[in-house]
Design a protein around this nucleic acid. Structure first.
Length: 448
RNA sequence: CGGGCUAUAGCGCAGUCUGGUAGCGCGUCCGUCUGGGGGACGGGAGGUCGUAGGUUCGAAUCCUGCUAGCCCGACCA
């Protein structure tokens, strides 16, 4: 169990804006004590940031496993040999960090893992009976960006979910593609984000079919064009059977048939067929991408299975990524105000804050302790601000770190038997007895 | 990689032009008063001025090299 009393926690908040942070998410992550820059584009994750990272990771694992995908973990340092085999060692360019070990062998810090996962596959899978198979990992990656910027949104070291499907036929692989699209829709929605799948460019991964998921934000790096009706689409709590091909296909069609493209694939003529009042030009942050690339890696790397007729056939593959660390930046870009972050309930580092307005007041202290115990007994994680600080400082800290709910406890309210429950997002406060406040918070998180 | 800029206390900055041995705000520590939106007063701690060399009686300040970081551009999840 974490220490959830602020007096004993490690939350190095900053009152002033660090000079190097340009965009709001970077500023707020530094000010809220979530990260500390270690060098250009490389960050240490402090307790609050680390907690959010873990929450995102948990959601991703749950949704991937629900879709039938299997978690593994591959190394960050990889031998250049495999990359020479696929031809990408030379293709990848300066973005790939190359290192030599003591024996003068070429190593690299993995920017992605198609080669390695294909090597695992070819070593252990030989029959169509072992298909379909989708392996994924959540692991640190490195791309030696020419110019890292915007904090974790464009770092050099980043945390990423990357998954790889292996299928016997193109049809099977396209179902895997659809399955990923659906699972990603669910994943982002649970995080409180609207990420719109847009037709994209395949870039260095290569391939035929690809969609990027974009979160709309003014600070986004890509220009996007879409039909305003796409933002009305929500996945909601509809039941999904990932083995049901027709259902997965229908959901893909529903979410990708309206016009939504990045500037790379934008087609002015097609765009202009949308009724004028529905045409939108905006900016977006890319938080994920899915690819179908057929036998691009399986052929050169010789990843083949025996099909039912006894013939060897290269497997059809796809890969799929979610930028986990940059998602935190995207979440903040999409959820903040002048006072700080506003976490969606699904990803908040603590479920609520408890603010003791008069530390040292016997009744206030006792009421806060009781609230803290009741909430933790229900499996919730409150952050209790028990510091010897004035009310204003405590409010400012709570607003900055963005916990969605705050329970305010002071002598004045306690005299009437009530505490105050405040929504960070709306600012609306309600007075109620402490037990009722606990119930209210528990109810909010009951379905998450 | 091209163009621009910066480096002085944990954070934000002044001091550099005109050389004389470092200062402000915030934070931090101690004390008192406070107690519903970053409170007040008093007292303290904290800096090889990025680094190496040079000029000088004397360098944060002038000169040179190096390193790190930031911004714009090209590139990218």
């Amino acid at each position: 169990m974490y220490t959830m009393r602020l007096s004993r926690y490690f939350l190095p908040v900053l009152k002033e804006n660090p000079a190097d942070a340009q965009i709001v998410s970077h500023r707020l992550m530094l000010r809220a004590g979530m990260i500390k820059q270690a060098s250009a584009g490389i960050y240490s994750w402090l307790p609050l940031g680390f907690k959010v990272l873990r929450k995102l990771e948990d959601i991703i694992h749950e949704e991937q496993i629900r879709a039938g995908h299997i978690p593994i973990q591959m190394p960050t340092m990889q031998s250049a040999d495999l990359w020479r085999e696929s031809g990408r060692y030379d293709d990848y360019g300066q973005e790939m960090l190359r290192v030599k070990d003591r024996h003068d062998r070429d190593l690299l810090f993995s920017p992605t893992a198609e080669e390695l996962v294909t090597d695992i596959f070819r070593a252990h899978v030989g029959s169509y009976k072992d298909l379909p198979l989708t392996l994924y990992q959540i692991q640190w990656k490195f791309r030696d960006e020419i110019r890292p910027r915007f904090g974790v949104m464009r770092g050099r070291e980043f945390y990423m979910k990357d998954g790889y499907n292996f299928d016997l036929t193109k049809e099977d692989a396209l179902h895997a593609y659809n399955r990923h699209l659906v699972s990603y829709l669910r994943t982002y929605e649970r995080m409180g984000l609207q990420a719109i799948p847009m037709r994209a460019d395949s870039g260095p991964i290569g391939g035929e079919d690809t969609h990027e998921f974009l979160v709309l934000a003014d600070t986004g790096e890509s220009e996007v064009f879409y039909d305003s009706k796409v933002t009305d689409l929500t996945f909601g709590d509809r039941a999904i059977d990932y083995d049901d091909r027709a259902q997965c296909q229908a959901i893909l069609d529903e979410f990708t048939s309206l016009y939504a493209r990045t500037d790379e694939t934008h087609d002015e003529a097609v765009f202009n067929q949308i009724p004028e009042d529905r045409r939108r030009v905006a900016r977006g942050i890319e938080v994920g991408q899915i690819f179908y690339f057929g036998t691009k890696y399986s052929e050169p790397l010789n990843a083949a299975v025996t099909d039912p007729t006894g013939a060897k056939t290269p497997v059809h593959m796809g890969s799929h990524g979610i930028g986990v660390s940059r998602l935190i930046g995207a979440l903040i870009e999409a959820n903040h105000d002048d006072n700080g972050i506003i976490w969606p309930e699904g990803v908040t580092p603590f479920h609520c804050g408890i603010v003791n307005l008069k530390q040292g007041d016997a009744e206030a202290d006792a009421a806060c302790d009781a609230l803290y115990k009741s909430l933790t007994a229900l499996g919730l994680e409150p952050l209790y601000d028990d510091r010897e600080e004035r009310a204003g400082a405590k409010f400012a800290t709570m607003d900055l770190i963005g916990l969605p709910w705050r329970i305010t406890v002071g002598p004045r309210g306690l005299k009437n038997g009530v505490v105050e429950v405040t929504s960070r997002r709306t600012g609306v406060s309600e007075e109620m007895p402490p037990e009722q406040a606990v119930e209210k918070i528990a109810k909010i998180y009951a379905n998450l």
